[in-house]
């Protein structure tokens, strides 16, 4: 498939906030990403859908610079970041919430929350965060990993909101969580979108993705194979089932 992004381009022609092109990535010797290409515009919520092992998580890791070996192009706000170390990428205003949540056991909740340095002005204040996630305030002195899975997920998102990052990469935030928590996370994402955040979301559960996203990028074997606007999701259900093998 040629350039799927072009086919669904809306009327607006402003430069995308994030432009991924010809992205290749390796885990050690194994070649995982084979020319990923997609754009994310400011204020959008885009999900990366795909089967296990399709390369969704690897794509996020390649964008934040966690992969040791990567090639191609990742342009964020007009700046090429492919050659930068991950700390410099983060400093440009990119926040990453990893799949395993990455809550630190040797830090308490407050320390976990305050850990990522502020990279840009305009991040949420501690007060606003506590308003959004009241549990985190109550449990601020508990060990980070003593929180429930849902609370840990909230913490992992909350600490990025503090930093002023403009683009947030969320890796499977709903994985292994109870439906009521999943709902809460959905609300949080919608709220963040309303506040102007741009979000790239990796999901296996497209029913959840449907409730938050503007657009779905479908990945297979390290390539983008399709893009489906959220409005067209129901119409493309069969195709999607085939992609995801559900």
């Amino acid at each position: 498939m040629g350039d799927p992004a072009a086919s669904v381009s809306p009327a607006g022609t402003a430069a995308p906030l994030l432009a991924v092109d010809r992205l290749e990535g390796w885990y050690g010797e194994s070649h995982v990403l084979h020319g990923m290409a997609f754009d994310v515009r400011e204020g959008e919520v885009v999900t990366l859908l795909g089967r296990n092992g399709a390369g969704k998580t690897t794509t996020l890791k390649a964008i934040v610079g966690m992969l040791e070996k990567r090639r191609g192009s990742v342009v964020f706000e007009g700046v090429e970041t492919i050659g930068l170390p991950s700390r410099k990428i983060a400093r440009r205003g990119l926040g990453y919430v990893p799949e395993e949540r990455g809550v630190f056991a040797s830090l308490n909740v407050y320390e976990n929350l305050m850990l990522p340095p502020v990279v840009r002005p305009g991040g949420m204040s501690l007060e606003a965060i506590y308003q959004l996630f009241p549990n985190l305030k109550e449990r601020s002195t508990s060990q980070g990993t003593k929180l429930s899975g849902g609370e840990q997920q909230m913490l992992a998102i909350a600490r990025i909101l503090r930093t002023g990052a403009k683009l947030i990469l969320l890796d499977e935030p709903t994985e292994g969580l109870a439906p009521v928590i999943v709902q809460q996370i959905g609300e949080t994402i919608r709220r963040l979108k309303a506040d102007g955040y741009t979000i790239v979301l990796v999901e296996q559960n497209f029913r959840f993705a449907q409730t938050v996203a503007d657009r779905h990028v479908v990945i297979e074997l390290g390539r983008v194979v399709d893009e489906i606007p959220n409005e067209a999701l129901e119409a493309n259900l069969e195709k999607l089932h085939a992609y995801l093998g559900v």
Partner: peptide, 21 residues
């Protein structure tokens, strides 16, 4: 110290927060 403890657990992740590990 919090940076140190966090980086002891997971240096790669701390680096993605913009910390100079």
């Amino acid at each position: 110290g919090a940076y140190l403890r966090a980086a002891t657990e997971n240096p790669a992740l701390v680096q993605t927060f913009g910390v100079n590990v």
